[in-house]
């Protein structure tokens, strides 16, 4: 922040996301049951837990891709409700990276990165292009800018997806298992990008089972099971001495 004159209230608040008593159901099935989570600015949170525990559902609720059934979600000072007029305003502040990349296959790499800044943020084409090229350079893929997604490897595609999200200059980045669809030799290039992003102070919530990454960047590991947060701790404590039996069982499984 260079200009401190008229900082909106939300910008001075130390938290960026508040989740309170969140409930999410799919039909009769309760996917999230009374979840509470607060994300501070610049905080890096790693979410882990067994398959089906509700990790994806939780982060998808944070940008309202899934609508919640109970509780409150406040993102950057704005409460998410079904009737809110400006959900896209909130979403444009929240970057999201998916397990399956979800690049737009009919647009070139650089166009993937330019579309939302132009259409949502109102940047001119040259501005959007310049920003896109900067961020593609940052994820070290600018030499492929005019290729199409299908012409890139999985690791390259995921780095483009990260750049695309960053082009909106989001206040927080959500990652849903960004490396689990990748071949092992490509995992590192994506994790390196995420480590770099973390080092620059980006607020991040990552669903991942990459324990090395969690140890290196996470301020907090949040462990979920059956739709609830079961345990939260700093990574060192969590991996060395998990308190709950369920977390112990889970850690045993992913290490072996």
């Amino acid at each position: 922040m260079q200009h401190e004159i008229a900082t909106p209230l939300a910008d001075r608040s130390p938290t960026i996301v508040v989740v309170e008593n969140l409930v999410k159901r799919f039909g009769g099935f309760t996917a999230l049951n009374d979840v509470n989570l607060t994300v501070a600015k610049r905080e890096k949170i790693v979410l882990c837990g067994p398959s089906g525990s509700g990790k994806s559902t939780l982060i998808r609720c944070i940008n309202h891709i899934e609508k919640h059934d109970g509780g409150r979600i406040v993102v950057d000072g704005v409460e998410l409700t079904d009737r809110m007029a400006d959900i896209n305003g909130v979403r444009s502040e929240v970057g999201m990276v998916f397990q399956s990349f979800n690049l737009f296959p009919h647009l070139s790499v650089v166009e993937n990165c330019m579309l939302a800044p132009m259409k949502v943020r109102g940047l001119s084409r040259p501005e959007a292009r310049e920003r896109a090229m900067d961020l593609l350079r940052k994820v070290r893929i600018h030499s492929q800018a005019d290729k199409y997604p299908a012409q890139l490897s999985g690791g390259q595609q995921q780095r483009v997806a990260i750049a695309r999200a960053l082009c909106m200059q989001p206040k927080i980045m959500l990652f849903d298992e960004p490396t689990s669809a990748l071949d092992p030799e490509m995992v590192k290039e994506v994790l390196d990008t995420m480590v770099q992003l973390a080092a620059e102070g980006m607020t991040m919530v990552c669903v991942t089972h990459e324990m090395g990454f969690a140890r290196e960047v996470a301020d907090r590991v949040v462990f979920m099971d059956q739709g609830s947060i079961v345990e939260e701790a700093d990574p060192e404590t969590f991996f060395r001495a998990p308190r709950t039996q369920r977390a112990k069982g889970f850690l045993n499984q992913i290490i072996h």
Binding site: R91, S92, F98, N102, A116, K119
Partner: peptide
């Protein structure tokens, strides 16, 4: 089309 296309677009704030 894969559902992820719409989701990715929504996540970027495209209405």
């Amino acid at each position: 089309l894969p559902k992820g296309q719409t989701e990715a677009a929504s996540a970027l704030g495209l209405g």
